[in-house]
């Protein structure tokens, strides 16, 4: 869906998108990592299971909810990536660990 502009700095860190190791520039948000490396939807709604993906990228729409390092329903556009971060799609209602 998205690509890096030419003249971007070459520094990279590794994160895992749905289990796949990918490289992104430091300072990226988790949602931006999904735009660069994910395809199509990044979550399905807890209401009807519709596919959705990042929409506003500024923290107001809650469309970029992701599971980040095992923590469900995180606003991906507000979480800065860290080396080794596990980013997964949020599918429907979150599960709870009893």
């Amino acid at each position: 869906m998205f690509k890096l502009l030419p003249d971007s700095p070459s520094e990279r860190i590794t994160v895992h998108v749905d289990g796949q190791a990918v490289s992104v520039p430091p300072g990226f948000t988790a949602a931006a990592a999904m735009l660069l490396h994910g395809t199509g939807s990044t979550r399905t709604t807890p209401v009807t299971g519709e596919p959705r993906a990042p929409y506003c990228m500024m923290g107001v729409c809650f469309e970029c909810l992701l599971q980040i390092d095992g923590e469900p329903n995180q606003q991906g556009c507000l979480v800065t990536v860290a080396e080794g971060m596990r980013i997964e799609r949020q599918l429907g209602k979150r599960k709870v660990d009893e």
């Binding site: 807890p46 209401v47 429907g92 209602k93 979150r94 599960k95 709870v96 009893e98």
Partner: peptide
């Protein structure tokens, strides 16, 4: 937020709705 079913019956101070 909506959760997968986890409370099969209501308590005096807590209940899980149909929506989760």
């Amino acid at each position: 937020e909506r959760l997968q079913p986890v409370l099969p019956m209501p308590t005096l101070m807590m209940r899980q709705t149909v929506e989760g």
